[in-house]
């Protein structure tokens, strides 16, 4: 039960606020990129780009977007997220196996 209620010096509060602001800038940038990826994905489908490349590209765009969501919006890039990352990657690995199974060895 550490003394979390100790008063903080003013300059530290200011410093933290500044940091949060910096982080928020990154978040907005992330958001802009996510919108961009979404536009590209929809645009490719609407313009009927050669279908040989389109599906892998769509999937990569989705994965990148999700990585942004997890690492920036959900703060997985910050410290104290080691166990979180372990379990999310564990879940993702099982998820990947499941998807591969259902697209390959399900009789058709």
């Amino acid at each position: 039960m550490a003394d979390q209620t100790q008063s903080k010096p003013m300059h530290k509060v200011e410093y933290e606020k500044q940091q949060h602001k910096e982080e928020m800038k990154h978040q907005v940038l992330t958001f802009a990129l996510m919108i961009l990826f979404t536009l590209i994905a929809f645009g490719m489908v609407v313009m009927e780009v050669n279908s040989y490349f389109i599906i892998p590209t769509l999937i990569i765009l989705a994965i990148v977007q999700v990585a942004f969501q997890l690492y920036y919006f959900m703060h997985m890039k910050n410290k104290g997220h080691d166990m979180v990352a372990l379990m999310m990657y564990g879940g993702a690995a099982v998820a990947l196996l499941t998807i591969i199974t259902f697209t390959s060895i399900i009789w058709w």
Binding site: G91, V94, A95, T98, I99, F102, T103
Partner: peptide, 10 residues
Amino acid sequence: ETVLFASLFG
């Protein structure tokens, strides 16, 4: 939940 949705996607 990741596995849950993966099963649904599968």
